[in-house]
C-alpha cells in the first residue's frame, strides 16, 4: 500500500513541477527592418557609442545560405488543369493579326481533263539527268 502511495506522490509531484512557470524570456516579434535582430538590439542602427556601422561590417547580420536538408523536395504532378490559365496567356500574348492579304481566287468553274495513255495523275518530274529528292 505504501508503495502505491509513493508512486502516486511521485506522479503528482512531476505533474505539479511540469506546470511551474519557466524562466521568463522576452517575447520577440518579426520585424520588417532586415537589419533589426529579432532577439535584441538592432546592431547597425543604434550602436551604443552612437556610431552607425554599415550592415556589411557586422558579421552577425549577414545571412548565410543553408543547404536544403534531405529528403529533396520533388514536384508533385498537377492535379488541376492549367488550361484556363494558359488560355488566358494565349489570349493576352496573341499578337496583332497580320494585315489581311489578298489571296488567290479559288477556282469558280468545273475543270475538265481528258485521260489519255500518257496522262499522269500526279505532278511529277520525269528527269533523265538529275532528278533528286532528299
Amino acid at each position: 500500500m505504501s508503495f502505491t502511495r509513493n508512486i502516486s506522490a511521485i506522479l503528482l509531484a512531476s505533474f505539479l513541477f511540469s506546470c511551474a512557470p519557466a524562466v521568463e524570456t522576452p517575447v520577440t516579434f518579426p520585424t520588417y527592418d532586415p537589419f533589426v535582430s529579432t532577439g535584441g538590439t538592432p546592431p547597425g542602427h543604434s550602436s551604443t557609442n552612437g556610431i552607425t556601422s554599415t550592415p556589411a561590417a557586422s558579421e552577425t547580420i549577414i545571412p548565410s545560405a543553408t543547404s536544403t536538408r534531405p529528403p529533396t523536395p520533388t514536384r508533385v504532378p498537377l492535379n488541376i488543369s492549367p488550361l484556363i490559365g494558359i488560355q488566358n496567356q494565349i489570349t493576352s500574348n496573341s499578337p496583332t493579326p497580320d494585315a489581311a492579304r489578298v489571296l488567290p481566287t479559288p477556282r469558280q468553274q468545273a475543270d475538265e481533263q481528258s485521260f489519255s495513255p500518257a496522262t499522269r495523275l500526279e505532278v511529277s518530274h520525269s528527269s533523265t539527268i538529275s532528278a533528286c529528292k532528299h
Binding site: S94, P106, R107, Q109, D111, E112, S114, F115
Partner: peptide, 26 residues
Amino acid sequence: LEVGTVLIIPAPELAAAGGNSLKIIP
C-alpha cells in the same frame, strides 16, 4: 480509268465557316 475518259473536276464548294485567325507561332 478508261482511256479517253474526260474527267470533270468540280469547282470547290467552300464551307460557310472560315478558318481560324489565331496566330499560333511566329
